[in-house]
Amino acid sequence: MALLETPARETRPPQPATRRRGRGRGAVNVNSPAHRGDARLAWVLIAPSLIGFAVFAVYPTLRGLYLSFTDFAVLTPPAWVGFDNYVKLASDDVFWSALGVTVYFVALSVTMSLAVSIVTAAVLHRLTSSTVIRGLIILPFLISAVVAATVWAWMLDAQLGIVNIAIESLGGDGVRFLTSREWAIPSIALINVWKQMGYTSIIIFAGLQTIPPTVYEAGRIDGASELQMFRRLTLPLLRPILALVLVLNVIGAFQVFDIVQVTTKGGPANASNVLQMLIYSKAFGQFDFGYASAMSFALFAILLVITFLQMRLLRANESEVSA
């Protein structure tokens, strides 16, 4: 890096480039003497990022991996236990049940979110380019999950909630959305979809705008209906964006925490005890950091595999019209 620099040089502002000795021969472009001193400045400029990367990204990742092989309760030094945590994990019913609950949540949430978002984006694309409408649709994305969870806890309240009042006035039976075992996860998924749907729609909408209108004109000339064009043209052409959105949604949903923590805290009777919630309570409720770290890495491994599979299945790099 600094090898090419003459030792004790004055200050940074370079003299007119051509006067400097070196390989440049006066050109101002790549590797010319105009870029002398670049290295020193560059390392100064990236220093904060480099420190942040090393100290708060690389080090904690490696340390987390190490901690997952230890028994660690924060106050005493970690004690190496080999694969004990992972062995325990494999036969831990609570972990597998949390994984099941999480997968159920991810499946519900991502399916609903993608279905609604694709239709919304397509409808927006065909009807209006109004920024106001698109703006209104992403409003829930701007507020915190805690706010979203609080509002919906109120609207879904068993006694006074407006949703139940509406259901009952239509002749239905009231639903104990957040307080019953069967409804806890679907309700949390609903809140999550409400919060994420606009964001996902806007990304898909932007993808739709990159499809040239001539594609549709050709389709129309061939006598295709709107629905046919949607299935045969739009969806295949959107494949790369859909893959991206799917991966983002799945990764986000697997790490759901805020909404659960505010609405059900994992209850009733662990019915909504998702993985992130379990990791949190293991670490900060029972101070079992070693075991919690092992669970984090298990979750990470699951995410890696799923992301890889999704990319493969959707062949994200290519979009194609034949389908």
Binding site: V55, F56, A57, Y59, P60, T61, R63, G64, L67, V74, I251, Q255, Q276, I279, A283, F289, A292, S293, S296, F297, L299, F300, L303
Partner: peptide, 13 residues
């Protein structure tokens, strides 16, 4: 690297 991997160790740090 998702947040889950770094949250706990960063808390310890």
């Amino acid at each position: 690297v998702p947040g889950i991997l770094t949250l706990l160790p960063n808390f310890v740090l």
